[in-house]
Structures are given as structure tokens and as C-alpha cells.
Amino acid sequence: MKPPPFDHHAPRDLGAALAALAEAGARGKVLAGGQSLIPMLNMRLAAPEHLIDINGVAELDTLEAGPAGVTVGALARHSRVERSAEAAEAQPLLGQALRLVAHPAIRNRGTVVGSLVHADPAAELPAVLALLGGSVRLARAGAAPRDVPAAEFFTGPMESAVRPGELAVSAFFPAPPPRSGTAFREVARRHGDYALAGVAALVALDDDLRVAQARVACVGVGPVPLVLDVTEESAGDDWAAAARAVRERAEPEDDIHATAGYRRHLAGVLAEQALREAALEGRANA
């Protein structure tokens, strides 16, 4: 479990990082928190010839929270975002999800943007981005950055819209609508493991505190986060009906930890719990 040889690039600014990435092209990989990449290198499952280590690029270590939402730079660690009162104020779902990401030691090192780019279908943050309709900003040398909406960003299991030579420099998580609440529920085999299934929920209420919008993003039940609008089914707080809709539309697969049927069942149970909790929070916020 030792990696094959690679060239290590340690740029000190964004320009140098983009230049190194452009030169490496498809033979390069970005190293940020390294919580997924390093094990893959050690197991020789990945063998990039160039590692572009952005840990020295201070300008990427940013976290901005405002009325519009939260923008997380490529070097912001999970734990920083998790502990940020401003981020929690601007978008509570981020903190609700980050608490479920692995363990503190991993959150101290791993990055939010790295988790999005890794695009594990069982990970929490892609679901958060997808549910909120956020976006990822991709930069490349000699070109204007492009913003890719979440719906187009996750293209398959462990696959994202990032092209060779591109660097995901930040992610934007929009603020929730007024009179809304969010929740994240998941079941993992052990504390901190990737979820067998998980559901992020957003419930927005109208002036009479009735459900105006109910959406969920499910993890672990498909190749990419499954975003479902269950507003109609949720009318009159009928969370059980919403859960049925989630069960029907989830397309999980068997693996060594759980059957597809159990995951489908879980998605329903967790959707019901998450929607109920989000609505409760929405009414408390109203």
C-alpha cells in the first residue's frame, strides 16, 4: 500500500496552480484534503503522474456567508464550515450535514469542495448542494471561470463535470427561502460511516404556514443525489405520502452492506422524518 511515483507540485497561488493543472491535463490530480485521494493512491487505484497540491494556495482558503448564501473556497476544511456561526446562520443545512460527515479527524483535513468533486453518491455534501440548487465554480488557465449548477455538476458515481485542467475553486450554497426549515437524516452502519441512505429535506411555508414547497435530496439510493419535489404529496403535512413518493422514485442497488429493498425502505422512513423535522423548524423560524 505505497503509491506509485508521481511529481508533486506545490503552487503558492491560483495562477500557478492553474498553470500546473493545464500542463498536467488528464495526467494530473488535485490534492486538497486528501481524505479520498491518498488512500486511492496507496491502494494504487489511482496513479496520476502529477499531484497539484493546492494546500499552499492561501487565496482558496475562504468562507463567505451573506444574505444570498454561503460561498466555500476550495481549501476550506469541513470543520471550519461546520463551526462557522455565520455559515450556520446563512444556510443551516450545511452544519446539519457536516456533523454527519465521517469523524472529526477527517473533517479537520477534508474539504467541502473536495467532497463535491469526489462526488460519492453516498456523501452528504453533494445532496446538500443539489437540494439547495447551488453551484460549483470551475477555473482554468487562460479562460474565464464557469459556474456549473448542481443539477449538471454530478454526472455519475464518483464523476463530476470537472474537466482535465480545471480546478473547482469554490462552491456556492444558496440561502434558504423565507419561512423554511431544513433537516438531514441518515442511517450509517457505524457512527461516521458513509450512509446506507440519507435524506436532506427543505420545507418552505406560505403566509398561512402551509407547505409551499417540499423537496428532498436522497443519498445512497442512486448514482447521483436524487432530488425530488414532493410539494404536492406533502400537502396538509402528509409526510407519509411524501415518503411513499420517495420510495417509489428511489433506484437503489444492492451492495454488501444493504439490500436495495432496505435502502428504498430507509429512504422513505428518513424522508418522512427529515420532512417533518424541516417543517417543524420552518414553523419555528416563521
Binding site: 442511517v187 452502519r189 446506507l196 452492506h257 444493504a258 439490500t259 429493498g261 432496505y262 425502505h265
Partner: peptide, 11 residues
């Protein structure tokens, strides 16, 4: 026994 197996046993 895992939660998944318990679920299947219940069914």
C-alpha cells in the same frame, strides 16, 4: 445481523 437483514427478516 445487520439492519438490512433485520428489515428483510421482518418482511
Amino acid at each position: 445481523i445487520s439492519p438490512s437483514e433485520l428489515h428483510e427478516l421482518r418482511l
